[in-house]
């Protein structure tokens, strides 16, 4: 999305959403103005999500995290919302530091975020404060570690052939 960059000029739908968050930074993606990325600080994140829902982005599409490892903040959580009435997408990106990997849960705003937040907790160890049931989703409950973190080994087993034994 950084590929084309650029500012969005005069976008009433988006302006109404972004107005609630002082820290919001808007960029357009290679897909054009139908797919807009808003980077936002942690403090403004819940307000922005609520404003997005009120502003017409009624469909919850996706929530995932990216582990940048060496970068500060280490994680990005990316929320993907869709407005079917305006036929456009909104990607909300919020940085999460390694020292305190937590974010307010948005599963009360979008119930669909429930499983996605559980998956993100499971895979990245990001805690979603206020989530009703933040347990492991994909891995067994007693699993140790968060597999999709970059410092978690892929866990491959060396391949052995009978002839070499």
């Amino acid at each position: 999305m950084a590929a084309s960059g650029g500012e969005v000029a005069d976008d009433p739908i988006l302006d109404a959403v972004v107005a609630v968050a002082a820290s919001a930074k808007v960029t357009v993606t290679t897909a054009g103005p139908v797919q807009v990325v808003v980077e936002v600080g942690r403090e403004d994140y819940p307000a922005l999500v609520e404003a997005a829902r009120a502003g017409g982005f009624e469909t919850f599409i996706d929530l995932c995290a990216v582990d940048h490892l060496a970068r500060e903040p280490r994680f990005d959580v990316v929320v993907n919302l869709l407005s079917t009435q305006h036929t456009r997408r909104l990607l909300i990106k919020v940085g999460v530091p390694n020292e305190d990997p937590s974010l307010p849960s948005i599963s009360m705003v979008y119930p669909g975020a429930n499983f996605y937040e559980r998956e993100t907790w499971d895979m990245f160890g990001i805690v979603f404060d206020g989530h009703p049931d933040l347990t492991r989703l994909l891995m067994p409950d007693e699993w140790d570690g968060h597999p999709l973190r970059k410092d978690y080994r892929i866990g491959s087993v060396p391949v052995e052939f009978k002839a070499t034994r």
């Binding site: 160890g125 570690g145 973190r149």
Partner: peptide, 23 residues
């Protein structure tokens, strides 16, 4: 054990151990 191990592989060990205790 090695499938569970969250220890780093060629990355900074400090971060890895932090990540694990944090879990």
């Amino acid at each position: 054990d090695n499938t569970r191990d969250s220890e780093t592989e060629g990355l900074e060990g400090k971060q890895a151990s932090e990540g694990r205790s944090h879990g």
